[in-house]
Design a protein around this nucleic acid. Structure first.
Length: 418
RNA sequence: GUGGGUGUAGUUCAACGGCAGAACACCGGAUUGUGGUUCCGGGCGUUGCGGGUUCGAGUCCCGUCAUCCACCCCA
């Protein structure tokens, strides 16, 4: 009987785990530097939380949720996204009753029952930022700037930021109507997918890849022309802040977000070389969500990014990640007396936070040296008759070959300061 | 959910329908006091799984699973 990993999932194992930890560490550091603090919510929630917030008709809810009932028939879902749970926690802990701003970041697995593809998995890992408590466009720009700084900190190149405004609920509705009016005369000429989109989500017609649909959308109205004064002002101020913060972006009026709760600013960070799944982070403002989840109406803005796509992009750009663990010292002990002498040393050095490796299965001197070399250790610590007699093991620098008999304290000192 | 490609050793790949191989990696050794180079030795692996055709299937056919690419959707 063989067990296999579920479809669309993957193990993160050494040496890759070092890459993941590195990327997470950088994200934490950048988030902290903007004042965002970590929130961790459960991996499953009441299914209804997602159904209502993401929208009953969204793909996520209709066909991608891992739903299950517990032993008492309650309906839960593995979380398909991170924002709704954060908002639920925010409301449930009564943070909406205070005037304070709240800044959260989170990291963790999300689940969607999708067909796996390059950069798309059924269990995937996201990092995210949520700013809750102000409609000031400064914060739209702040979360975008945070993501850009994170990507730059990692050394990612050739990424693109696209921004758009989908307006408030009202502008957005008017725009949908205008779009429908525009496409209605040619409805029968649109591709099958787009004919469905016409009713469910007409904006998606704007980025359909079928050439004939591309021709039909010439002269289509732009969302930006359907923003009311407040929304227009919000978008302009967001752009101004972005300019002032040195964030590069392009405006793409056809950016659509998949979840219903977005208002005003919408944005995506894109890496073209990734292939079809080329969005590494996306988000926007969601001024209606907190009220919808049961809290007091509170404006908010945030985004989520995918670790898999990010790491894929970093790897394809040949960006160097930290190596996996390598020992500071590899102990080469000769004979029983050498081993006995070594045991004590292992403890002293580990107490001094030196990573020391020893392998009792290697017996010959030669094979121990070989193993020391392969372990990529910086030093070999050789313990034989002579060294025991002197009570000074020999510390050999494996890079330049120099070696010296030293006391234990000298060894610790040498290794820690080189 | 739809369409296409691919599944052989740890990895990358060979093998006309006729005895399953190579390279790399890995392990051991070349006198238990010096690693990287070198040399010698070490591989029967349910050819993803299950059926079928055939004297004979890694090879052909069907199904299935996985994976990759694209659609869709999205991070």
């Amino acid at each position: 009987m063989n067990y296999r990993i579920p479809r669309g999932t993957f193990d993160i194992m050494p040496p890759d785990s070092a890459k993941w930890n590195y990327v997470k560490d950088v994200f934490r550091r950048v988030a902290n530097s903007f004042g965002y603090d970590e929130i961790t919510t459960p991996i499953f929630e009441m299914a209804e939380l997602f159904e209502r917030s993401s929208g009953e008709t969204s793909d996520v809810v209709q066909k991608e949720m891992y739903r299950f009932t517990d032993l008492r028939g309650r309906v839960f879902a593995l979380r398909p996204e991170g924002t709704a749970p954060v908002v639920r926690a925010y409301v449930e802990n009564h943070l909406d009753k205070t005037a304070a701003h709240n800044k959260f970041y989170y990291m963790g697995p999300m689940f969607r029952y999708d067909r796996p593809q390059a950069g798309r998995y059924r269990q995937f890992y996201q990092y995210g930022i949520e700013f809750i408590g102000s409609n000031n466009p400064y914060y739209d720009a702040e979360v975008i700037a945070l993501e850009q700084m994170f990507l730059k900190e990692l050394g990612l190149k050739d990424f693109r930021l696209e921004v758009n405004s989908v307006g408030c609920a009202k502008c957005s509705q008017e725009y949908d109507e205008a779009l429908k009016e525009f496409f209605r005369p040619n409805l029968d000429k649109l591709c099958g997918d787009c004919q469905n989109r016409f009713d469910s989500n007409p904006r998606r017609i704007l980025d359909c890849k079928v050439p004939s649909c591309g021709d039909l959308r010439h002269g289509a109205p732009s969302q930006l022309d359907y923003l009311d004064d407040d929304c227009k002002d919000h978008f302009e101020k967001t752009r101004l802040y972005l300019d002032q913060m040195d964030v590069d972006y392009v405006i793409n009026p056809s950016i659509v977000r998949g979840l219903d709760y977005y208002t005003n600013t919408a944005f995506e960070f894109i890496v073209d070389s990734l292939g079809a799944q080329n969005t590494i982070a996306g988000g926007g403002r969601y001024n209606g969500l907190i009220e919808q989840v049961g809290g007091r109406a509170t404006p908010a803005v945030g985004f989520a990014g995918g670790f898999e796509r990010l790491i894929l992009a970093l790897e394809s750009q040949g960006i160097i990640f930290p190596e996996g663990l390598a020992p500071d010292i590899y102990v080469v002990a000769m004979g029983e007396s050498g081993e006995n002498y070594a045991m004590n040393l292992l403890t002293s050095m580990r107490e001094a936070c030196i990573y020391v490796e020893y392998n009792p299965d290697k017996r010959s001197f030669r094979s121990q040296m070989k193993a020391a070399d392969q372990s990529k250790a910086r030093y070999a610590l050789i313990i034989g008759e002579e060294e025991i007699k002197l009570d000074k093991p020999m510390l050999k620098n494996l890079n330049d070959g120099s070696q010296e008999n030293l006391t234990i304290n000298q060894i610790i000192d040498r290794v820690k300061h080189s």
